[in-house]
Design a protein around this nucleic acid. Structure first.
Length: 531
RNA sequence: GAGCCGGUAGCUCAGCUGGUAGAGCAACGGACUUUUAAUCCGUAGGUCGUGGGUUCGAGACCCACCCGGCUCACCA
């Protein structure tokens, strides 16, 4: 696909002449030609359109705060001016008034207004302003003052072009209806696909998008801080694995040329982290990308970020306790409150969370005790409820299907669902009171699975049998079943202490805490179809 | 993979039951030395996703295709 179907898809524009494929979008070409012309004019005047550095003394909001403080302290001079500052940022608005001009400069902290005057700058310097455009980066030095309308502003004494923008940002505009006084927003960049593909423009134009990713970073740093405080060791394990495992998913394959062998991108780091528990590290965690070769929807991206942690000497109940403390702290730190609103649901992350048994909750929903129902009974219930894709499903899978249909959507507040069927959980310890179940839990919030955890299976003989069962499933066509990992079994044979572990989807957690409807909204560069 | 919705100016969108394309903003020229995503005057800008068909006539209707979004399925 080389022919540009739409103007915005075209790339690699040379200064002049414009490539012929650009003729399809003449207006854009003209707009950009003007910017190239200005670039030439800037160079002709001996100015550097792409500077190397700039000495900034204040962020935009710091400059405003500085003036406010000086004003309150009575430290302004007789002209109402405070001290000088230099600020730098992107030009987001420009209002020319002949012999003066107002503009806003935006940096990572926010915006500050700047004011140019011909009598301050001199004729030549002032006229050079004509060569600026919205979204150019400039630095300005000047004195802070407050305008008649009350806005703290930098009266520019000197300005420096830092980077000439050759492509206009898709910036919107707000308009006020003169009759009704109603304000309508002309949002400049609402095409979701374009926003994902050109995240740089999305971020440049939409401050709320920048905020989502600040919150995401805060969530991750708070998770680290919490676990570090619990004496966990942060580790790194292979992303390229000779054998994949730790989850039920199809992997991505790749090839190492020099070794001439197939490698898999990890679907989970679980088995490596537990090897480290065998090694005696006792408390380990890793925050990393996992890769699963599955479909894409608003909860799934082929590469996603997962936190896994493992702690020796605790079981899954201990993991629940730890998880409650961790989430409450992270949510509080990242959002300022343990309560957040997600898509209209008020969620409260202050523990303790409800703990419900998987079978019991399903029995309640179904009106029958599923523990004594056969697979055939379950199947007829599922068929009655028109649960899709029942082919080849055994007892455990049917339990899971029915649970997903009847119970899961109702789990809005953080809820631990406990004790899953054994056949679904090949890496979890058998339940101490019921050999058909495992000591496992999933954490559901707003109807979605956020975390998965268990008392880790540390009996190497049982583990081998579970792997062999998985191998039989794989043989029978289940392409998500685990392959046998002999090396992992060997590690368990050396002895793994009783251990509780958890995996949590960071992207989904971020969705909840930033009220974003799609995982693509919390991943800077989500996986998209081919252009 | 299925269903629904959509693809018209740089951006956001309008375009009635078919009559030959419009608005706001952006752009360009001009005026304006405290504005508020200023205001005023003027100018330019579109093979209406692609290909075919129906028609005297298609942005509108039909068919196929391409692209995207959402929902569902898949993802224990």
């Amino acid at each position: 696909m080389t022919e540009p179907s739409r103007g915005r898809e075209t790339e690699e524009l040379a200064p002049e002449p414009l490539p012929s494929e650009e003729l399809a979008s003449e207006e854009l070409s003209r707009v950009r030609q003007h910017r190239y012309d200005k670039l030439d004019a800037i160079r002709e005047r001996g100015l550097e359109p792409y500077a190397y550095a700039y000495d900034r003394t204040h962020l935009a909001v710091e400059a405003v705060a500085l003036f406010d403080q000086a004003e309150q302290a009575g430290a302004l001079d007789e002209n109402g001016q405070a001290e000088g500052v230099s600020v730098a940022g992107r030009i987001t608005s420009y209002r020319s008034h002949g012999k003066s001009a107002f503009a806003h400069l935006e940096d990572r902290s926010g915006q500050v207004q700047i004011y140019f005057r011909k009598d301050v700058l001199g004729d030549e310097r002032f006229e050079t302003l004509e060569l600026l455009d919205l979204s150019d980066w400039i630095g300005v030095e000047g004195i802070l003052f407050r305008t008649r309308t009350g806005e703290v502003t930098v009266r520019v004494q000197n300005w420096t072009l830092l980077s000439k923008s050759l492509r206009p940002l898709p910036r919107g505009k707000t308009e006020t209806d003169s009759e009704t006084g109603e304000r309508s927003t002309f949002s400049g960049f609402t095409d979701k696909e374009a926003r994902y593909r050109q995240r740089y423009a999305d971020l440049a134009v939409n401050p709320e998008v920048r905020e989502v990713f600040r919150t995401r970073a805060k969530i991750i740093s708070e998770l680290r801080s919490f676990l570090d405080g619990e004496d966990f060791l942060e580790v790194e394990t292979p992303a390229l694995q000779p054998l994949y495992g730790g989850a039920a998913a199809r992997p991505f394959l790749t090839k190492h040329n020099a070794l001439d062998r197939t490698l898999y991108l990890r679907i989970a780091d679980e088995l490596y982290l537990k090897r480290l528990i065998v090694g005696g590290l006792e408390r380990v965690y890793e925050i990393c990308k996992d890769f699963r070769n599955e479909g894409v929807d608003r909860f799934h991206n082929p590469e996603f970020t997962m936190l896994e942690f493992y702690q020796a000497f605790i079981d899954y109940r201990g993991v629940m306790d730890l998880t409650e403390r961790m989430l409450e702290r992270v949510v509080r730190s990242a959002t300022g409150s343990p309560e957040v609103v997600y898509q209209g649901h008020e969620l409260n992350f202050a523990g303790p969370y409800e703990r419900i048994p998987m079978l019991g909750s399903l029995s309640d929903a179904l009106g029958a005790d599923v523990a004594v129902l056969s697979a055939d009974d379950l199947r007829s219930h599922a068929e009655r409820l028109k649960v899709p894709d029942l082919e080849g499903a055994g007892w455990g899978k049917l339990i899971d299907k029915l649970f997903g249909e009847l119970v899961q959507p109702k789990l809005i507040q953080p809820t631990f669902v406990m004790d899953h069927p054994k056949e679904l959980s090949p890496l979890a310890k058998p339940h101490r009171d019921n050999p058909d179940l495992t000591e496992r839990f999933e954490l559901f919030i707003a109807g979605e699975e956020i975390a998965n955890a268990f008392s880790e299976l540390n009996d190497p003989i049982d583990q081998r049998q579970r792997f062999e069962e998985q191998a039989r499933l794989k043989e029978a066509g289940d392409d998500e079943a685990h392959p046998i990992d002999e090396d992992y079994v060997r590690a368990l044979e050396y002895g793994m202490p009783p251990t509780g572990g958890l995996g949590m989807g960071i992207d989904r957690l971020t969705m909840l805490l930033t009220d974003q409807p799609s995982i693509r909204d919390v991943i800077l560069f989500p996986t998209l179809r081919d252009v």
